[in-house]
Design a binder for these strands. Structure first.
Lengths: 198, 198
DNA sequence: GTGTTTTACTAACAATTGTTAGTTTGTATC
DNA sequence: GATACAAACTAACAATTGTTAGTAAAACAC
């Protein structure tokens, strides 16, 4: 019964590490801390992982893969308005995050402690992801659906900031579904706080 | 000529430390790194500061004080609509950040490495600050200026997230004034991306 | 039952961490 | 010239860091 209906020990290590990295930060979290949480000795960790950084690497790049896959799906859809496309993108992003809030927090805050060349690879992926959202916004501006008066960089960074802080305040036990939250978020960014003239 | 038209050595140390903390993170930045950037030995730092944490403390609480003072000014104004009040709050926040982007980044990302009881004090200040923005939004909802359909917590956290990521992408050398950026930001959050029906 | 893999252990390593003690040097003040 | 202070130094400390080597016990496959 190895790796069938139970997760491997390595995955266990990585999950516990994610929680620890989120709580203390990658650098402040020591391998002895991690071992203690698992009830083993620090040296025993190396039966499962190659290094501390491997854990961070797995966490960051697994999340990145999920984000990319989510955006692929949205882009594959046809006949969507810019608002709809943006909304789908946002919902997808929120859903990926909600699936693992702990890993999301690590992905967001600790990726910078990756060493080269992994850090470079990671940042390239991230720029690509942001750019694809930027294209959605630009498309909406071209079609006249969105205002052209708003700075594109500002718009996309505001969007991205809102999305990425979610792990810090979203309560996974709350009644609200990720998809609903995503809808509300996109509504707020697209339509704004102000009451529309009826 | 001590502390008249030149900043004290202690302030120099703190400024260089801020840049280092921002770049590497508080924990990963060593006192030997810091000393090297200043061209002195690590032990010499302690002629100016009591501890590594004192630097973090000064950085975080000086920023906090500025944010609070900015919000005090906004609240002292009378006869403002909710949109105007919110806009003033946002502009103030952006201006405080823009005045020292480095310290802002440390304030935002590294405050969690404060030890108790300072961490508790810091978080209380922060909750208070967020709550005051929340009150502005609620006032707008009560008066019918803002939609009531939007979740208050979502609204205020989205706002706060957008604001706090600014140090990561704002270019201090750009032509755009902090006050202008604040206006654009508040416009985007209040009125949204969508073209208003004309 | 034998062989193999997984999982853990003890012991230790070299390097790095923040910090202290005690001292010296330069500079301004009287 | 004596005094005081700021700012730096050398040397060293105890603790903690990630990691390796080598080994033992349990769980599995056949």
């Amino acid at each position: 019964m190895t790796e069938v209906n139970s997760i491997s020990r390595k995955e266990q290590v990585i999950r516990v590490a994610a929680a620890l990295f989120r709580e203390k930060g990658y650098v402040a979290a020591s391998m002895r801390d991690l071992a203690q949480k698992l009830g083993i000795e620090a040296a025993s960790l190396y039966s499962h992982i190659k290094s501390k950084e491997e854990i961070l690497h797995v966490l960051c790049f697994d999340m990145a893969k999920d984000f990319m896959a989510s955006l692929d799906k949205v882009e594959a859809q046809v006949n969507l308005t810019a608002s709809e496309r943006l909304q789908q993108g946002i919902i997808g992003h929120v859903e990926v995050m909600a699936k693992d809030l702990t890993a999301s927090a690590v992905f967001m805050n600790e990726h910078r402690h990756l060493s080269q060349p992994y850090l470079r690879d990671f940042l390239l992926l991230r720029i690509n992801y942001i750019n694809r959202f930027k294209l959605m916004i630009e498309a909406g501006m071209e079609s006249g659906e969105f205002k052209k008066s708003i700075d594109k960089k500002l718009a996309v960074m505001t969007l991205f900031s809102s999305l990425n802080w979610m792990p810090l305040w979203y309560d996974p036990n709350s009644a609200i579904e990720p998809a609903t939250l995503g809808k509300q978020l996109s509504d707020m960014l697209v339509n704004g706080l102000k009451q529309n003239p009826s």
